[in-house]
C-alpha cells in the first residue's frame, strides 16, 4: 500500500509518520503541498505541525493548497485518509470532516500522554474498539466543537472515533477523533505515529495505523 505523507510549510510530524508507516511495511512517500497529483497512491496521511505558521486559523491555508483537491478526490473515491493533530485541523478546514478545533479550554499547550477509548464501528476503530489506548497529544488548539445539529448527527451516526478518558482540552463530548459519514476519512488530535515503536516505549498507536489497510468506503 502506497501512502502519501503530505508536507506543508511548517509540517513537523511528517518524518514520524513516514517512519512509522514504513516500519509497518507500508510504502510511505512525501508529497509537497504544491504537487498536482496523487496518482498511484492508495491512502493519504496528513501530518501534524504548524502548517503556514497557523496563520489566520490552524490548518486554514493548508486546507486550500493545491494538493488538497487531490486529497478530496481520493477521499471521494473511498481511499483511507487520516489527519493527525494539525492534519485533523486541515481536514476539518477542508470540509472533509465535521466540526472545528478551537484553543484548548484552559489555554495551555498540552504535551502529554492521554488515554483514549475507541468508539465507532468504522474500519478505523474495529480493531481498537473496547480497548483503552495510551497515545501522546501535543496541541494548543484541540478543543473539538460542532454546532448542535452536527454534533447530534456525529453522535447518532457513529462518527465519533475516539474519546478522551479525561477531557483534557474541553472538547464537546470529550471527542478526540471523528470519521467522515462514509467512514474512510478520519481525524484525531492524538498522535498514533508517535506511539508506534517498541524502541520508543509505546506501540498503542499501531492498532490505529494498521487500520489504513482495512479502510475502504
Amino acid at each position: 500500500m502506497k501512502v502519501a505523507v503530505i508536507r506543508f510549510p511548517g509540517s513537523n510530524c511528517d518524518q514520524d509518520a513516514f517512519h512509522a508507516l514504513n516500519d509497518m511495511g507500508l510504502k510511505a512517500e512525501y508529497v509537497w503541498h504544491d504537487a498536482g497529483s496523487l496518482d498511484g497512491f492508495d491512502a493519504v496521511f496528513v501530518p501534524g505541525g504548524f502548517s503556514y505558521g497557523d496563520y489566520l486559523r490552524c490548518g486554514a491555508m493548508a486546507a486550500r493548497s493545491r494538493i488538497m483537491s487531490e486529497v478530496s478526490r481520493l477521499a471521494e473515491a473511498g481511499c483511507p485518509v487520516i489527519g493527525v493533530c494539525n492534519g485533523f485541523q486541515v481536514l476539518t478546514e477542508a470540509g472533509l470532516l465535521p466540526g472545528a478545533l478551537l484553543q484548548n479550554e484552559h489555554e495551555k499547550f498540552l504535551c502529554q500522554d492521554v488515554l483514549l477509548t475507541a468508539e465507532s464501528d468504522s474500519s478505523w476503530t474495529r480493531e481498537a474498539k473496547g480497548k483503552t489506548l495510551r497515545i501522546p497529544i501535543a496541541h494548543g488548539e484541540g478543543r473539538f466543537i460542532a454546532d448542535a445539529e452536527t454534533l447530534t448527527r456525529v453522535e447518532g451516526e457513529g462518527q465519533v472515533a475516539f474519546r478522551y478518558v479525561e477531557n483534557v482540552n474541553g472538547s464537546m463530548n470529550s471527542i478526540a477523533g471523528v470519521v467522515s459519514p462514509r467512514g474512510n476519512v478520519m481525524g484525531m488530535m492524538p498522535h498514533p505515529e508517535r506511539a508506534a515503536s517498541l524502541r520508543l516505549g509505546n506501540t498503542d498507536g499501531l492498532v490505529i495505523l494498521r487500520a489504513l489497510e482495512l479502510v475502504r468506503a
Binding site: L56, R57, A60, M61, R64, E93, G99, A100, A146, D147
Partner: peptide, 9 residues
C-alpha cells in the same frame, strides 16, 4: 466564505 472566516466557528 472561502478563506478568511470559518462558518463553523
Amino acid at each position: 466564505d472561502k478563506l478568511l472566516a470559518n462558518p463553523v466557528i
